[in-house]
Design a binder for these strands. Structure first.
Lengths: 328, 328
DNA sequence: CTGAAAGCGCTTACAG
DNA sequence: CTGAAAGCGCTTACAG
């Protein structure tokens, strides 16, 4: 930067001000500096900026696993939105363990990120609010009421309602439901949506049709086996997420039950693998990529002092080949 | 740090030296400093360290998409290994575009990462070597001969050989092959392994059985359709990766061809979704997570001035339910 | 509008 | 073995 200043015949302060747009500078000096900058191919050192200005142009992102189909897509969206403003994401994984998440958060604080985006996780609201005192925070996929935290959440209830309604409209009356990990509000809200869908169609909620899962393929398989072994009759299964649905597909196929001819299956999230399962899953589309973008935009707004609000896209149903009208 | 120095009654220099183990310090001062550190809950500011010492304790990782099942797993391994030594990964996505990769690399250089791990990609060897002059580099999934770059590559040829041999040993003689994106050496090496497997069994290589794909599900589907439409006879398909295999599974099912009863299918990579496809895929296991760890360890070694070498786990076959002995 | 100066929190030769 | 000092490359009050 010193070189730029020299070449342009101004002080480093001026260069800095131009770079940051932090004060108005006479047009001629601006021009001189700008041309010096690109003739020297200068670009400011973010590390020094971080130390001097207290801003690192980096945003911490607490995810659970970078490699999950769900979180992975959100990360892509976040990355894309941040890049537009030259921020870089620092992804850290919590692996669904509170202690790991805490360590990861501490690491982010240490690294002096300018803000943090939290993707769900196991950290308590209190805990999160504590961190939010140190740094701007936006939480995706979870709703937290606190002035310091901006949260964006999916309309899980409505999503599950759409899925269930889709099934009832196709004539299904005996619809099983594979619950997610009820430690998460998502799981609870989705279950609620299912219930609502059943009631809305004037059907009875049958507890025997509701079985536990944990948002994993394995959980979906076990759930289907349990359902089948119990002898309850059902013609469709609504699942708390696509992973469970994919497990369900496998379990059904092993028992020689055809989807959708014998049983319809609907997933939730509309994650990539759902599009290529056999058969491709009808699923509730959350537009996770867009949601990630929205979260990043809210963060960027916060950093600018705006109080921008973003709405997440409404869930909609992606109908593919795993659901079918009930024919008797 | 100034506070720590004061409390411990030493100079900041000494504190720094203890923190970094960069010179021997008398035991009593060490003890004093250490206790001051934890009574003050001090932890050094990495940003300042970065500026002063030229080291940021961060490693750039050029990946293609954080959300790919293949790269995602490698990232997890990298993250885990780096964490052990308090390094943090900076993940940037190249999206398989040379220009994006270059921008991402430049960003990493700007951020003064201490090293960079490159996951395959489209950057030319020359280009990579150029960057390697600025920073230690390890490349995973690609072999580059250069003193400045350490590269770790999978034994793709042997992997494909194992897959093909598995099929021939089960009596298959008409084995189709779905090629990957031949811009990548992987695709070429895997194809070579297939050829070797066919020859090894004393069979003829039939060009009609070899069809193009691009490592995607879509590509796998199209390939199968083409094969089927062409009327060539085959009883098994070996695929260049799991995504293609998953696409193949779907295409076969749509034509009412049962796997493995009518046709056996074998994948490559043994990525998570392969374990829960319908049916679960037999696949060549690359232990990508371990490979990520290995790459990170090599990087860490480099940083310490060691010339540690790591060998990637040998590919092995995971036999599941998509392959079966040919019965006539 | 613009400079000179101090400072961000460390590290690292340089002396001793 | 250990301090004092300079410096890493910026930003930001403080004056003018």
């Amino acid at each position: 930067m010193a070189m730029v200043a020299e070449v342009a015949g101004v002080s480093p302060s001026t260069v800095s001000r131009i770079l940051n747009g932090t004060a108005r500078v006479s047009p001629d000096k601006t021009a001189a500096v700008l041309s010096a900058i690109d003739s020297l191919e200068f670009s400011p050192n973010p590390v020094a900026r971080g130390l001097a200005g207290g801003r690192t142009a980096s945003i911490g992102v607490l995810t659970q696993t970078v490699s999950s189909p769900f979180y992975g897509e959100a990360l892509l969206g976040i990355e894309a939105a941040l890049r537009e403003e030259s921020y870089i994401p620092l992804f850290v994984s919590g692996h669904w363990m509170e202690s790991t998440e805490r360590m990861a958060m501490d690491e982010l604080m240490l690294r002096r990120v300018d803000g943090v985006i939290v993707l769900a996780g196991r950290l308590s609201d209190r805990m999160l609010q504590g961190y939010a005192k140190q740094v701007p925070m936006v939480v995706l996929g979870r709703s937290i009421n606190s002035s310091r935290v901006r949260s964006l959440s999916f309309d899980n209830r409505n999503g599950a309602l759409l899925a269930t309604r889709h099934l009832t409209e196709m004539g299904h009356q005996r619809i099983a439901y594979i619950v997610g990990d009820t430690d998460h509000d998502d799981a609870v809200e989705r279950l609620e949506g299912y219930r609502e869908g059943i009631r809305e169609a004037g059907l009875q909620i049958d507890p025997e049709l509701i079985t536990n899962g944990d948002f994993t393929e394995q959980g979906g398989m076990l759930a289907v086996n349990r359902l089948l072994d119990s002898g309850v009759r059902f013609t469709a299964i609504a699942c708390s997420n696509d992973q469970a649905a994919i497990g369900a597909l496998l379990a059904l196929s092993r028992r020689n039950i055809r989807v959708p001819d014998d049983v319809s299956v609907v997933g939730f999230d509309d994650v990539m693998p759902a599009r290529y399962s056999t058969p491709p899953l009808s699923s509730v589309q959350l537009s996770i990529y867009e949601a990630g973008k929205a979260a990043a935009r809210v963060m960027l707004g916060l950093l600018r002092g705006e109080n921008r609000s973003e709405v997440l896209p409404e869930p909609r149903l992606a109908i593919r080949e795993s659901t079918q009208r009930l024919h008797r």
